[in-house]
Nucleic acid binder design. Structure first.
Lengths: 269, 269
DNA sequence: AACGTCGGTTCAATATGTGAACCATATCAG
DNA sequence: CTGATATGGTTCACATATTGAACCGACGTT
């Protein structure tokens, strides 16, 4: 692992829950040497990626990130093109929703909106979505570049009692996702969360990310699932359009069969 | 220079004007070896700081920056607290205005707003404001921590025919800034730009940044200067309040004498 | 005053980063 | 078709930059 990678990994310890961290504490959390960590922080500070709170000497994320994020958003204006759609999705489903983007072999959160309808709700606070254990990740495996497969298999970390743990099981699940047009994570990543997601595409027609709804598992009824899926389809079409793409015909077809089957189920039950 | 610093410096080549860069081109611009640059980009890609446009293989800034910027803004919510004030400043002065923040020994741009009143106007598109050559930088030297002085003297780069080039001249200028309460850059950094700025303070009472107006030099009359200064005082007070601080009494006093003198000048001229 | 913790520094050992040369591929002119 | 010149990416011998145990001074508690 390069020294640069180790340095950049330090940034992941700065979260909304813990926005400022002292040197010693960061060493403990990262399991690194103090001298090394200090030098790493110096490098980050030189670049404006972290700064020190002058009062406490604790480190926090720096202002250079704002500039770079600004340029990123001007380059690939995805966040703006997802926000309003996400608001609508949260309104109609009453559940927490988020949009993630694929970059390299990692699925990153882009925007998330928490529902205000229920007192219990899902909170999205992760650095990246594991490919094998989240609805977004499964979408990426099913509809993204084939290069993701080895990356997923190499990191089959177990999060809950239901996490997919073998390559075979993963292959079957991904196949089901391809068939239905929806990613599903039934308490695979967090114990009480049911995730459902639909793929989103960009101007080149490639898989670009996913739009997802995270439901508290105890609330997840067949009727909620049907509603969520209907709205996800709309949301995926809208975001895809905003990102300059169109939903591939085979995805639309998968959604159509998938929905009609669940409608039959619905009406006969 | 650490390898990490060299790596992070690459990010500065991604600008709104040039948001995507190929490997070879980046090597040329940065004057680096291709293999090294490639590895550096790999490290940045692993961290999600850059990604490759799948079509062209060119690199562009990555999605991880958006997350980190979000956390930074939640930690130190300065951008939001400056935006509305800046809008007002642009409205009343009719010139481009911006807010910068000090982090370490560097003054970074935080937000800028271009005026729509004139067809010629200043464009703010820099990575950082040199301490000795810009109004914001001079404010930092005058009102910021004393540790900035050596950093400024070590980098007395000449930008225009009027750039301050000697330590003595800089000392005098900074003294004048302390006395007047305003930073001034009379075509020191760019040939046709007159910058005026006022310091902004944070909750700890320390110098935190500056709010500035950049005028096209040919338009910069004494009456415009007076108007700009009046509005800068208001803006500085407002942003300082939004950042949880209050303007120190000695700054207010400097402004008072500074303004009354120019008013006298104004009325007698 | 003894102790623990903090942020920060030193220096020998060596892991890590480096760049000239190389490859495969694509584009273009003749 | 062929040779020239781009591109992104890879290799390997070499040496330079990174590493961490031990250390320091400052601060706050006991």
């Amino acid at each position: 692992m390069s020294s640069t990678t180790k340095t950049l990994e330090l940034l992941a310890y700065f979260t909304p829950a813990q926005p400022e961290i002292g040197l010693s504490q960061l060493c403990r959390q990262a399991g690194r040497d103090k001298a090394t960590t200090y030098r790493h922080l110096q490098a980050l500070e030189d670049a404006g990626f972290v700064e020190q709170n002058p009062a406490t000497k604790h480190y926090r994320l720096g202002p250079a990130l704002l500039q770079l994020a600004q340029i990123r958003e001007e380059t690939v204006p995805r966040k703006a093109g997802a926000e309003t759609v996400l608001d609508g999705l949260v309104d109609t489903t009453g559940e927490t929703a988020h949009v993630s983007v694929l970059s390299g072999t990692t699925v990153y959160p882009l925007v998330s909106r928490e529902s205000q309808h229920h007192s219990t709700r899902a909170i999205i606070d992760v650095q990246s979505f594991p490919l094998h254990a989240t609805a977004s990740g499964l979408c990426a495996l099913a509809f993204g570049p084939s290069g993701l497969w080895p990356a997923a298999v190499a990191r089959l970390q177990v999060f809950t009692g239901r996490t997919i743990a073998t390559e075979d099981a993963l292959r079957q699940t991904v196949e089901a996702v391809r068939h239905s047009g929806f990613g599903r994570s039934d308490r695979c990543y967090e114990d009480d969360i049911q995730g459902v997601s639909a793929p989103v595409f960009d101007q080149s027609g490639r898989f670009a990310g996913a739009v997802s709804v995270a439901c508290v598992a105890s609330r997840f009824s067949p009727s909620l699932e049907a509603k969520v899926k209907e709205n996800l389809i709309e949301a995926s079409r809208d975001i895809t359009r905003n990102w300059g793409g169109t939903v591939p015909a085979e995805i639309e077809a998968a959604w159509a069969t998938s929905l009609s089957r669940s409608n039959v189920l619905e009406s006969t039950s």
